[in-house]
Design a binder for these strands. Structure first.
Lengths: 157, 157
DNA sequence: CAACAATAGTTGTTTAAACAGTAAACAGCC
DNA sequence: GGCTGTTTACTGTTTAAACAACTATTGTTG
């Protein structure tokens, strides 16, 4: 099992355990997300559009407003507009204006969108299960706990 | 300390520990890298250009070929060309053709590039130290070890 | 040594992210 | 009820990532 130092081709060891942990987090995220990106791509989606579709499926028939989608995706509203543009153009979602507040745009998933997600559910689950199958449940729980702690630092702006 | 489930606003718990770990890895990478991105931005750099400059500084006066830079950055060669374009335009790096192989382009860092990096060294180190300062060294080492293991799965293509 | 393949890098084009600025609808106030 | 400010979403523009196609040089081989 290669260390990160070897992978990166660095001669000297890391300056600190925190720096090593940080770089390991970034690298692992990149490595593990790549197969998912391929999967999304083969379904004509990106990670962003996939996540948006998931939000819309969870929202059901009533749909979600653009700013709600943006909040959940941690994306800006202008980006949501174009993201929904793409979904709508692909027939996976549709917009409709609210009666009560005519500024608001309610976005909901279409049957085609549900079908597209349904096609992905099993492969995604399989990938999740296979990707970390070599780790024990207690290791995974420890990992999650440490990661939650890692990002809960006092804001250092 | 909020759980990821609460942060995402999800009602049901995760389907599996591996899925939870995966999402925690992505989320933590995103949260922890944001302050660095701001730092780079304030110096007129991106994460990519910063990493490229680091590679060039480590390479010293002899510099590096484009494909070497690409391999270390895990980037494609066409992207390296434009990345070096930006560095050169900003006066932070320079190109020169090899005498021995006139196809090869050797890229090296300039004095301005070294100065730019030097300005960032201390803030970067401070951020690394402060960001995970609330975790013990043994926690960080455990985290790193688990992350290395997480991404060393048998290829699942 | 001519022809073909391989290598190093660049250019073109499409796509998406980022963010400022704008338009329309609503809310509160005098 | 009109004016100001706020909210909701859209549009414009810049910038970068992804990837195919291309040029120039070098290596190989019959």
């Amino acid at each position: 099992m290669p260390t990160l130092a070897q992978e990166i081709g660095k001669q000297r060891p890391f300056e600190s355990p925190s720096q090593e942990a940080y770089l390991n987090i970034l690298r692992t995220a990149s490595v593990l997300s790549a197969p998912f990106a391929h999967l999304f791509d083969s379904a004509g989606l990106s990670e962003a559009t996939y996540n948006a579709l998931r939000i819309l499926r969870a929202a059901g028939a009533q749909g979600r407003l653009c700013n709600e989608i943006g909040a959940q995706l941690v994306a800006r509203v202008p980006d949501v507009t174009r993201l929904v543009d793409r979904l709508e153009k692909a027939g996976l979602a549709r917009r409709r204006r609210e009666g009560s507040d005519r500024r608001a745009v309610r976005v909901s998933i279409t049957a085609a969108g549900l079908a597209r997600l349904a096609d992905l559910d099993q492969p995604i689950t399989d990938l999740h299960n296979s990707q970390l199958a070599h780790m024990s449940e207690s290791q995974l729980n420890t990992l999650s706990k440490l990661l939650v702690k890692a990002r809960s630092a006092p804001a250092a702006h």
